[in-house]
Design a protein around this nucleic acid. Structure first.
Length: 811
DNA sequence: CTGAGACGGGG
DNA sequence: GGGTACGTCTCAG
């Protein structure tokens, strides 16, 4: 018997003689890859009874069907809707039988319902054994010969034990592929892969078929590229494979190419290929024993809010956001990849550089993102593979689930389809309160906001599925805003875990303050507190999420009702008790200044904040956020601010979308910056007028006007003829090969009729024929008008139709 | 305003 | 595989 301590990377199971064997994959303290099997774990679920346990047990064990086999029934006590309740714990022979068994059991006399019959076997194991993915586990067992590609294989004896402590260094590699496709997005059925690049901590390689710089390893053919990748993963003993949008692109591509080349692709620690799954819009690609993590999910889910709508979620944009410039993505025009590939040696080297950089940039991003993902997986106790692909709601749910198990509470079922749909159909309830802004420019504005408003409301008022309108407090508990009451005797699971999350976060932030900025421990703690913040902020949404196990729509609407009450209350305190001027407020924040907009707001604000906090219940708190020297409020949710450090805070104004021309985007940016930095409306106005004049005078380039959009499907599949579709049709008639993925660049030309009828291809566009009126009225003016209107300038003035008060400048 | 349909990332 | 499913925006009616 040997003992091993390893970091739990992944968990799955294998059927051996009709029984499930748990497999844990990881890396030991000593840096060896390991698989640990456990043959002793049995699948089960709970049945809620309304008849005597013994009678039901007898019936269950007697039942003989080919679909499932009930091997054991035990009597257990669990908390069910806050009350201790008796359940039958029903064991089946293997996990796949649970689905059949649960329905049959539910149909039996004496059984009311089943519970916890929809939890994946590996996750069940983690929950029951109280393990945490991405932390250390100690096991004892017998070594055995495994066909898996691991250093150590152990068949476990006894129980696994979760341990505190650092995890060993994991072998992480990033990869990226390039394909040869003369037109449009590469199609794996037709277009070969020409190179694959990998980057780990100490290796950087491109596998391809042509000679190139030192980092290129030349192979015979495309199949050789696949084999070289497999060899790399095996030799470097890779634990985590990361890439960008690889669930949707690279992995399916590799899979299809391998199939066409009649090559059995083996990227995992066993002989199986890539396990591709597609559920609706979401795809996943897994390989046994290694974690394939697509960083795009992290960007798309976790960073969504942080990046805002302006920033695209392309690798280039994300790299630009997180990496220093010199580390950034090399950019080549990928429409030209085929030309670089077939071109001169210099062209080919450029392509190799590009391919290599893509893998390196991805690796650098994974160095930042993966440790964050580790902390998330650990906190919610879901294997990294799933945690990295999981939405906010599911993360909260996972956290509730392990807490329910720890507290011996029954986990509520997920809603069935009809219930889900019914929830989706219910009318939306009133959301947050937004204070109508005082439009225009303001100076010396202080911003205060509630620390975790919704979580603290849920905690303070004990809002939960199990506590809302409870029988035990009927008539006794006071109804809160929104008209419901919440149990005064028993705490609900959601308030309990939220309190726990907020307290943990405070602790970690204290600890963080003691650490040296940038140290390993600092980064780890910072990632943990970030993950806790994500969880806390997602809790409210989860209450009203239609797929939620702990759904309580009325609970969620009570949260917003209380939120409205609190924010209105502080607006009133600012006005009535401190004679301040609230200029804007949204949900949990308030922008205030003094009546004369003086710097005195700084001192008065301190007193205001203290007064508010004295009145708030325990965990609730109003915090000082920032002081702005100037700001322009345009409308609800649309404003731009600048603080003393000259940092800009722009919200809602970036309705610069991809169908906007560069000249419109640039004009909007310049205008806002000028307004905030100089506080000079006239100057901003001049900028707009100058651009309008440039357009009128024809002083622009095609690139100023061009909008680029990709075709997302075959041309004939478009039902609506958008401008880029119309242009694609023209290009096709001209003999060009336009297909899915082809980027269409177009400019709007002058003339009559629909915009789409006047859209012309960028290439060969006669700059003299652009539609001046369109670019002024539908591009420039809309981009700046909302801001300028808030400052008292109408569209007519902007366009110069009316010689308003600025005629002196342009007269 | 409401409902249906497009779209994201990837080369 | 004990999981069946996203959120946001635009445009037509």
């Amino acid at each position: 018997m040997t003992e091993h301590t390893f970091c739990l990377l992944d968990i799955d199971y294998e059927l051996v003689n009709g029984k499930a064997v748990i497999r844990m994959f990881g890396r030991t303290k000593q840096g060896k890859s390991i698989v640990v099997t456990d043959k002793s774990f049995e699948p089960y679920f709970y049945a809620l009874l309304d008849d005597g346990f013994d009678a039901v047990k007898k019936k269950l064990l007697e039942k003989k069907t080919p679909d499932y086999e009930i091997v054991k029934v035990e009597k257990v006590k669990k908390l069910f809707k806050t009350k201790e309740t008796e359940f039958a714990k029903v064991y089946t022979k293997n996990p796949m039988q649970v689905r059949e068994a649960r329905e049959a059991v539910k149909r039996m006399d004496g059984v009311k319902d089943y519970f916890e019959a929809d939890i994946l076997f590996g996750r069940r194991y983690i929950l029951d054994k109280k393990l945490e993915p991405m932390t250390m586990v100690k096991v004892k067992g017998i070594p055995f010969d495994s066909p898996l590609k691991v250093d150590i294989a152990i068949d476990m004896n006894g129980e696994p034990e979760a341990l505190e402590g650092e995890i060993p260094k994991l072998n992480v590699a990033s990869f990226d592929i390039e394909a040869y496709s003369p037109k449009g997005l590469p199609q794996p059925e037709n277009d070969p892969m020409i190179m694959l690049s990998v980057a780990s901590d100490d290796k950087k390689k491109v596998f391809s078929t042509k000679e190139g710089p030192g980092f290129v390893k030349v192979v015979k053919d495309e199949k050789g590229i696949l084999e070289e990748f497999e060899k790399f993963l095996e030799k470097e003993d890779i634990d985590v494979i990361t890439a960008y949008n690889s669930d949707n692109f690279d992995m399916p591509y590799l899979s299809t190419r391998a199939k066409l080349l009649k090559h059995k692709i083996k990227l995992g620690r066993d002989e199986r290929g890539i396990n591709l799954k597609s559920k609706g819009r979401y795809h996943s690609a897994g390989v046994t024993g290694r974690e394939h993590i697509d960083l795009f999910h992290y960007v798309n889910i976790i960073l969504r809010g942080a990046l805002g709508q302006v920033n695209k979620r392309t690798l280039k944009s994300v790299a630009g956001h997180f990496l220093k410039e010199e580390e950034g993505k090399k950019d080549i025009d990928w429409k030209q990849i085929d030309k670089y590939w077939k071109g001169s040696k210099k062209d080919l080297d450029t392509l190799y550089e590009y391919s290599m950089t893509d893998a390196v940039v991805t690796k650098k991003l994974s160095d930042i993102f993966m440790p964050r993902e580790y902390e998330i997986a650990k906190l919610v106790r879901v294997p990294l593979f799933d945690a990295s692909r999981t939405t906010y709601g599911q993360l909260v749910e996972a956290y509730l689930m392990w807490n329910a198990v720890e507290r011996n509470e029954v986990i509520p079922n997920r809603p069935v389809d009809e219930e889900r749909e019914a929830r989706a159909r219910t009318e939306a309830f009133e959301g947050a309160f937004v204070l109508e802004p005082e439009k225009g420019m303001h100076e010396n504005v202080a911003l205060f906001d509630f620390r975790s408003l919704y979580p603290t409301i849920i905690i303070s008022h004990n809002i939960d599925q199990s506590t809302i309108d409870c029988d035990c407090c009927k008539g006794k508990a006071k109804k809160v805003a929104g008209g419901h009451w919440f149990c005064q005797k028993k705490k609900g699971l959601m308030p309990i875990i939220l309190k726990d999350i907020l307290e943990k976060r405070v602790e970690i932030k204290k600890e963080l303050a003691k650490q040296k900025k940038g140290s390993d421990e600092y980064v780890r703690l910072n990632n943990t507190q970030y993950a806790l913040k994500i969880l806390a902020n997602s809790a409210y949404g989860y209450l009203a999420y239609r797929g939620s196990r702990w759904y309580t729509r009325d609970g969620a609407s009570s949260v917003t009702a209380l939120g409205r009450e609190y924010i209105k209350k502080i607006v009133s305190i600012a006005e009535k008790e401190f004679d301040l001027k609230p200029v804007y407020g949204d949900t949990d924040s308030i922008f205030i200044t003094t009546k004369d907009e003086s710097p005195k707001i700084k001192e008065i604000g301190v007193k205001f904040q203290k007064k508010v906090n004295d009145e708030l219940p325990g965990v609730m708190e109003l915090e000082f956020e920032d002081l702005f020297k100037r700001g322009v409020f345009v409308a609800k949710k649309r404003y731009a601010m600048i603080n003393d450090k000259d940092e800009l805070k722009i919200k809602g104004l970036e309705f610069v979308r991809r169908d906007w021309s560069p000249i419109a985007k640039e004009t909007q940016r310049k205008t806002i910056e000028t307004l905030l930095k100089d506080g000079d409306v006239e100057k901003a106005f001049k900028i707009v007028r100058a651009v309008v004049k440039r357009i009128t005078d024809g002083d622009v380039t095609v690139e100023d006007l061009a909008v680029y959009t990709d075709l997302s499907r075959p041309l004939e599949k478009y039902l609506v003829t958008a401008p880029h579709v119309a242009v694609a049709k023209i290009m096709k008639r001209n003999g060009e090969d336009v297909r899915t993925g082809t980027t269409i660049g177009y400019v709007i030309s002058e003339g009559g009729g629909l915009v789409s009828e006047r859209a012309k291809p960028v290439e060969g566009f006669n700059i003299k024929t652009y539609d001046k009126k369109y670019y002024i009225e539908h591009q420039i003016i809309p981009a700046v008008s909302r801001v300028m209107e808030a400052l008292g300038y109408g569209e007519d003035e902007l366009m110069g139709k009316k010689q308003g008060k600025l005629s002196e400048y342009f007269g």
